[in-house]
Design a protein around this nucleic acid. Sequence first.
RNA 1: GGUGGGGUUCCCGAGUGGCCAAAGGGAUCAGACUGUAAAUCUGACGCGUAAGCUUCGGUGGUUCGAAUCCACCUCCCACCA
Length: 426
Amino acid sequence: MTAVDNTLLADLQMRGLVNQMTSPEDLAEHLQESRVLYCGFDPTADSLHIGSLVPLLVLRRFQQAGHKPLALVGGATGMIGDPSFKAQERKLNTVDIIAQWVDRLKKQVSAFIEFNDHGNSAEVVNNYDWTKNVDVLTFLRDVGKHFSVSAMIQKESVKQRLDRDGEGISFTEFAYIILQSFDFSELYKQYNCSLQIGGSDQWGNITGGIDLTRRQHRAQVFGLTLPLVTKSDGTKFGKTESGTIWLDAKKTSQYAFYQFWINTADADVYKFLRFFTFLSEAEMVAIEEQDKAAQGKPQAQGVLAAEVTRLVHGEEGLQAALRISESLFSGQLEQLTGDDLQQLFLDGMPASDTQQAELTLVQVLVESGLAKSNKMAREFITNNAVSINGEKISEVDAVLSPASGLHGQYHVIKRGKKLFHLLRWA
RNA sequence: GGUGGGGUUCCCGAGUGGCCAAAGGGAUCAGACUGUAAAUCUGACGCGUAAGCUUCGGUGGUUCGAAUCCACCUCCCACCA
């Protein structure tokens, strides 16, 4: 057996990562030995987004403390759709699509946990494996019989949906909790898994599984939920003007990912350090105090962005993100060499090639996506929001050609304070 | 299956024949101020340089004119069965 770090719970609490636990004293006692725990990830898209980062990292924290993590990919539950705290019934995705997504998620999830740790290697499991062959009658008799509908409709996670005018819930979604509960019970049976973690919205589903496991196997298992990540200004965490922040570099470049964290508000950044990094409490406190003393621009955002980008995209991904960020925000674009610019291309900076001999600035803005329409492009130019190679441009009919570019080939177009696009002339 | 209520621009939500590209709020974007913050102020927010064009679940109708009226279809909700 692997040695167990029994300060784990205290560390999680220090980080603010514990929302609720079932029987806290018993759980603390239980975790004195190496245990098996799981967390589920449903395929609702072709990639996970940063909303899943907290549970993924907590799985890792458990593994580092000597426990064995199972990352469950919801091949079965993903076909149903979790209604928990969702305002509306969701559209079902096709079976093919879900199967593709499951494959993607398996890979993604795997990056956060270790598979060759001797005593407590991680495993990825798919609930489709034990759900696909259960026939309806068996399911209703052996599993469904343990659930009381009156208890299920009391669950806070579906209550608001039931109470809300203009919305309802199908039996399919209503039955979701039974499927997830069945997972916990099965994992207990197959792996002796005795703890499920998840977001705070999963409390109802987790306690459902605990009850089912007790009824089917007369076993005491545990649940722990993590807090919902909230921002001080009340807006939703994980979204920017350009949409969701994904963990897949093809959907959100390392650069964009890094920038997302750099832009964390002061009011949130110290909390996020605790949630999303493995820095020790002492290190984090030191950062906070230095920032307070310094008065100027805090360093916390930079630390957070670097740590999280490294966790998700590796050291190389971080370096790429840093190269782009430093080039663009240093304000010294003219000092970039041709090689530097070439590297930005490779690093995943938003960029495009053109074969044209010349382009109007309005065209460039629209084609690069920096402006949604010609009208908006003109508006940006007149508002002084656009600069090229570091120089503000305010002529609506400006025209670009290779000759005016850096090294006769590149234009760095900036719209607003933070959005860039690199244009290369072929 | 029956009865009733709904589907408005990214979201919420007004609008019941012309004054409606459609109130108001939120979100978002830009500028000023800054630290690639926060707060605040200003402006933008269907497309089009403009004339104008395309929108209010879908199709077809009534009308000089429809998001608004009618018919059918479709989806959602509530109650009843």
